[in-house]
């Protein structure tokens, strides 16, 4: 058996083990809440009660609708930038070690990123109010 005061399973080390125990605790707490929420309290079903709320009116059509494209466009930008953000973040930890050459390369990368951002900005990729008739606001 491993020495208890060290290693992954050590209760004295604030490592993954501790996190796992904490997660289990949190989950137990939330599960208890969910269980209580579901169990306690009188249940009285009625057709009106289970109808989705829409300002007191019977809803028209489905509440699952296709969202227009701009949203996805921005989501894709986000994805791209997020991945590139990952590069920056990894560089940040070792920024002292890689020194000036690293900084030069990274600043080139960031400037490129900025240029890309300005490009989609100019192209209108960041305008969500695509149909606003009075778009000057």
């Amino acid at each position: 058996m491993q020495p208890v005061a060290a290693g992954v399973m050590s209760p004295f080390h604030a490592g993954v083990f501790s996190l796992v125990v904490f997660t289990i605790l949190v989950m137990l707490f939330i599960a208890s809440q969910l269980f209580l929420a579901a169990w306690l309290g009188e249940k009285k079903k009625s057709p009106e009660k289970s109808r989705p709320y829409e300002c007191g009116i019977i809803p028209t059509g489905s509440a699952r609708f296709r969202y227009p494209v701009p949203f996805y466009l921005v989501a894709i930008f986000f994805l791209i930038f997020d991945v590139e953000g990952a590069f920056i973040i990894t560089w940040a930890v070792v920024y002292r070690k890689v020194g000036l050459p690293g900084y030069e390369q990274m600043s080139f990368f960031i400037v490129l990123l900025l240029a890309g951002l300005f490009y989609i900005w100019k192209q209108g990729g960041l305008d969500w109010r695509e149909t606003g008739k009075r778009a000057d606001s």
Partner: peptide, 13 residues
């Protein structure tokens, strides 16, 4: 109060 309140799930959810 919240715990002892009814837990509703709408139709179609």
């Amino acid at each position: 109060k919240m715990i002892t309140k009814e837990d509703t799930v709408p139709d179609g959810a």
